[in-house]
Nucleic acid binder design. Structure first.
Lengths: 194, 194
DNA sequence: AGTTTACTTGACATAAAGTCAAGTTGATAA
DNA sequence: TTATCAACTTGACTTTATGTCAAGTAAACT
């Protein structure tokens, strides 16, 4: 396998990203990506063993290019639990549309491929950690609703902020992104802050 | 195409149901269903044009066999909005695990097949109507939270009660069915009842 | 000059859905 | 009794995309 930081590899990742974004994650074949990157289909397999590997690598590439860590920083430095919850929903909720295409492609694989399911689950663990941090902060402030354990509240917030939920509200129900952020924050506060 | 109420047709539907349920909606091929029903693979295509048609027919078959209408009756006759919300979550939430296998198979198709996406969306409209009815009842009681319009609250409740959300909590996060019902009711009340 | 690395070319394997054409069988009707 | 018809069987074929394999090319390094 060629170098991990090769020119070609990056061109493939960029091509995958662009195609998945413009096609909303569906109908993008390995050959399409190869063509867009200006390499042969087999060159793609030289850098990524499977389509799944390529998709996972693309999400990591996006995280880096988009600077997800920096974007989550405000939520980590929030002074109290409530503002941390608000900031996290803002940061993550506004990140979803930027990665939706790639995420959707991974979720599609997830349905039939066990390995893909694990990979997607792994990627979503990062989001869960963010949820857990916000809930823990509430708990430390003595502001967590008594209706749930920390674990349960984390799981519920995680569901609320899942890509699936975003997808249903934005794409099926026609919500605007601004409404999504706004009402998710309201709902999360009503549910978890006492 | 053979009669709509044929013996063979029902055997196929039952076979599809049983296989999808025991395999949780994945890895069930047309040939598996045919084998289980004791007919040839082509006989299946004699009754159902495509796999999607078969899956949709299976959900309708299940709704009939399981008596979904009767099970939703208590929520329709609830005296006030709050109890209607509680009853609806109870009825629908406890129905999900019984149809999960078939639902999952449809959701898998949904990802790649536009026709399937429409079909699934259509089936889920019934659930949305239930959500809308509960929210409207709250509104009539003057008990709906002022944070949302009726439409928005309906959409949010719909997301909370989606099969995807159930799947994430029960299958990914390991919740018990009882906890799911319980906390969904709590959350919905906290979010929508003022 | 020889070897390695990255890539190309083109043929092949695989899986499952769906199609097609020709046959079988049992019931019904002339 | 024979003809017909609906329901079903049998088996071959098409399609689509992923992934594999083997052989070749071309530039860069040693």
């Amino acid at each position: 396998m060629p170098k991990i930081n090769s020119e070609t590899r990056n061109r493939i990742l960029k091509a995958a990203w662009q195609l998945l974004e413009s096609n909303q994650g569906s109908g993008v074949r390995m050959s399409d990506i190869a063509k867009r990157a200006g390499v042969s289909r087999q060159a793609v397999y030289l850098h990524f063993e499977t389509r799944l590997d390529l998709l996972v690598a693309t999400t990591l590439y996006l995280d880096e290019v988009k600077g997800i860590d920096e974007r989550l920083a405000p939520s980590r430095t929030a002074p109290d639990g409530r503002s941390r919850l608000t900031a996290f929903i803002d940061a993550w909720g506004n990140y979803i549309p930027e990665i939706y295409g790639v995420a959707k492609a991974l979720m599609t694989l997830e349905a039939t491929d066990i390995v893909a399911a694990e990979a997607w689950k792994g990627r979503m663990q990062a989001v869960r950690h963010g949820c857990a941090a916000a809930i823990h902060a509430l708990e430390r402030d003595g502001q967590l609703s008594t209706a749930y354990t920390v674990e349960q509240a984390t799981d519920l917030l995680w569901v609320l902020l899942s890509v699936r939920s975003w997808e249903q509200l934005i794409r099926d129900s026609g919500w605007s992104q601004a409404d999504y952020i706004d009402h998710m924050q309201t709902l999360a506060h009503a549910a978890f802050v006492r």
